[in-house]
Simulated scan of single mutants.
Amino acid sequence: MSGYCDSAPGHPLHGPYHDEEYGFLQRDEPVLFERLLLEINQAGLSWETMLRKREGFRRAYDGFEVDKVAAYGETDRTRLLADAGIIRNRLKVDAAIHNAGVIRGLRDSHGGFAAWLDAHVMDGDTRRDKAGWVKLFKRTFRFTGGEITGEFLMSLGYLPGAHREDCPVFERTVAAGAPWSLPARVPAPL
């Protein structure tokens, strides 16, 4: 992502995202759901398109409130598919509704989406790599291939690569607790 560290600063959309969000750990469920929804919808498009449509997505998907989106029915699907402020793709709309239901279920199984992510940082005794995350996401969510999953996790600090080490934002993401930068847990002795 070294090119992003060169081109984003000073850009009206990319600059603030690069400097304040990209690679930073997030805990709030609506923020995590927004990021997943935007990454899914970005497939085949530019990230700038997603940043331009971000407010449209926020309005269309009820501020990314998981319970509301999980309850969407056919009337909401029709409304979303007619909304020029978002990406009007049935597979992506259906994935958003389905994934909201999955995230709601993660509250019961893990205490929430953030806790689920934290619970899967390790794969046995080793830090989960991108391939392991992709496999897990494909089992859990819809429309989450390798690029979508990788970018989602990198954007939240679960995978490295959001910023070059010489980028001024790099150290801030580490200081903010990016999970990829934390020491791996050592198994307790028997």
Rank of each mutant, 00 (worst) to 15 (best):
R185Q: 13
F141Y: 11
A184C: 08
G161M: 04
T49C: 03
G124C: 07
D83F: 10
Y158S: 02
E165S: 10
K92G: 08
P12V: 05
R77L: 04
T149K: 02
A176I: 01
G124A: 05
W47F: 09
A96E: 07
G124P: 11
I86T: 14
K68G: 07
A8D: 15
V69Q: 09
C167M: 07
A71N: 12
I103C: 06
D129P: 07
H14I: 00
G73V: 00
R172E: 10
R127C: 15
K138C: 08
D123A: 15
V31Q: 14
M1A: 15
T126Y: 01
G85Q: 05
M154V: 15
K68N: 12
H120S: 08
R58V: 00
Y22A: 05
P168E: 03
I148P: 05
R107P: 10
K53P: 12
L91G: 07
K92N: 10
G157T: 02
D118K: 08
G145S: 03
V174L: 11
V134L: 07
C5L: 07
I148M: 10
L156R: 00
E39M: 06
D166N: 13
D19K: 11
A115N: 09
A131G: 06
G3D: 15
E165H: 12
G177L: 10
F33L: 13
Y72N: 08
R139P: 02
V93H: 07
P183D: 00
V102Y: 13
Y17V: 00
R139D: 15
S181N: 01
W47H: 06
G105T: 00
N89Q: 12
E171R: 12
R52C: 11
A114H: 14
L159T: 00
M50A: 02
I87C: 11
Y4R: 04
A70E: 02
D83H: 08
R79D: 03
R127M: 14
P189A: 13
K53H: 13
R90D: 14
G73H: 02
M154D: 03
G132W: 09
L136Q: 09
E151N: 15
I86E: 06
L37A: 11
V69D: 12
F24T: 05
S2V: 06
G101D: 05
G73E: 01
R35N: 14
D118P: 03
A162V: 05
A60V: 03
A115F: 00
G23C: 01
Q42L: 10
G145H: 02
R107Q: 13
R27N: 13
G56Q: 09
E55S: 13
L25Q: 06
L36G: 09
E165Y: 01
H14M: 14
L136C: 11
H18Y: 09
L80T: 01
E74D: 13
I97E: 10
E165T: 12
H110C: 08
F152Q: 04
G161V: 04
E21I: 00
A96V: 06
G101K: 06
A84R: 12
P160C: 01
Y158G: 01
K135D: 12
A8G: 13
A178M: 04
K135S: 15
E20H: 13
E21T: 01
R35P: 01
K53D: 10
A82Y: 03
F33G: 12
H110M: 04
L80C: 03
F113Q: 02
E171M: 06
R172L: 13
M122P: 07
A178V: 00
A162G: 08
F64Q: 04
A96C: 10
L106Q: 14
V121I: 14
L91Q: 15
D123S: 12
